[in-house]
Write a protein that binds this DNA or RNA. Structure first.
Lengths: 231, 231
DNA sequence: CGGTCTGTTGAAAACGATCAATACGTGTGG
DNA sequence: CCACACGTATTGATCGTTTTCAACAGACCG
């Protein structure tokens, strides 16, 4: 663990944060100088759709969603954002999506130009950025495959596996969902009702159990994985 | 126009090619030294899914598809690739998709490490690469929205507008489709039958006309745009 | 001329969406 | 502490869109 000092507060990062991976104390120090810590409570926008996009955010803790809402009210969630994720790499004029917190959310905020300039100087940072971009692309392609090819129940299973891999603290026997059924639906391109029914069906089939509304356990991981498979 | 010499052949690029935009003759010369020209005929793979991914391709001419085929035979087309597009930026070990030509296809092939190294030295190239990545992300998010939120007929209209914007030579009164109905279906997350029926319906409604199987004219651009709108 | 590939059309089935009612959970104020 | 209200989740019934299955038409090629 390395201590990172920011103008606002001190925070520690492990090597699990892709942005800071393998960076020396000295490099981290330079990085932290151009960072600013922002703290959000539930259901606040980090930034909204169409806002000028000159910032870049690194999630420190908490969970959020990246969403697009169209004029006619349809909403698509592009991704859930978790600690370590980097937001705002696209260098467009305006964000084509908004990012909202689902829980308390802590992020490092950078001016994009600053971070990109720094990436030119610090090779490790540059490499990490490429790595992250690559991961985002891979993840988005998986999402495209899910939306284009999978049935409702396959999508739900896929999401469970994804939560297992990405949601901090999630284990097969206890997944605490930070998102609502509507969020899940808008991520999977389904309706709330279909998501709810699918959960009920998986419960009836003995593959999962739902203790509280927001707590799911996977009883038969192998079956869920099979249903979720995109290989 | 600038003449680019390669070990194999000489080709000219305009500023419309994002990768070469705004680069000096000298820079272009260095670039071309690490490029190799590859020429494919119809229905050939530039590379297949799971092939080791150490190359990067810049489309010179022709059209192709980037596709993923799963073990159970479902196919999703991630994108159609057009002149100027860059393929293989993700730095994964293996390609998670294959790229196949639909027409004759000419590409510049780079070793990824070479091009990335060069991008460190040539700031314009680095900026162009970031620009391209950004465009790809934007485009992929649009695709996610399409698959998650749009009805079949909206998807088809969206694709027509996209062809208009991206397919070289496409004009509202004459779009020559290089892809089959099945390709369109697999891109839009629909079946061939649904795509065919949707075309027929748009024809009946007087919005398009189909002269030959592969030639479509848009008769009422405004309506098509309205139906395709994702704003 | 027959064969294959691609596209279209029809009928039926299935899946997911929509509409509507009900249950559950949490927090507030009486 | 209970009653109530509000937001969220579940369930049921019905509807509509898209898929599936099947037949056929047209283009291209040997």
């Amino acid at each position: 663990m390395v201590q990172l000092s920011s103008p606002y507060k001190s925070i520690s990062f492990g090597d699990d944060c892709l942005l800071f991976k393998q960076m020396s104390k000295c490099e981290l120090d330079r990085l932290s100088k151009s960072a600013r810590l922002r703290v959000l409570t539930k259901q606040q926008y980090l930034f909204t759709q169409h806002a000028p996009s000159d910032r870049l955010y690194n999630i420190v803790s908490g969970v959020g969603i990246m969403e697009k809402v169209s004029e006619n009210g349809r909403r698509q969630i592009f991704t859930f954002v978790y600690p370590g994720d980097l937001i705002g790499l696209s260098n467009t004029e305006k964000y084509s999506y908004g990012v909202k917190s689902l829980s308390n959310l802590t992020v490092y905020e950078f001016k994009r130009q600053n971070l990109l300039a720094l990436a030119e100087e610090l090779p490790t940072l540059g490499a990490n950025l490429r790595e992250i971009r690559s991961d985002v692309t891979t993840h988005t392609f998986e999402h495209v495959y899910l939306l284009g090819q999978l049935k409702a129940y396959e999508r739900v299973c896929f999401m469970l596996i994804q939560l297992l891999n990405r949601l901090p603290g999630a284990k097969p026997d206890k997944i605490d969902l930070p998102m609502t059924r509507t969020d899940i639906a808008d991520y999977l391109g389904l309706t709330v009702e279909t998501v709810s029914r699918t959960f009920s069906q998986l419960k009836r089939d003995g593959l999962i159990s739902i203790t509280s509304n927001n707590t799911i356990s996977i009883l038969n991981l192998e079956s869920i994985e099979d249903l979720a498979s995109t290989a």
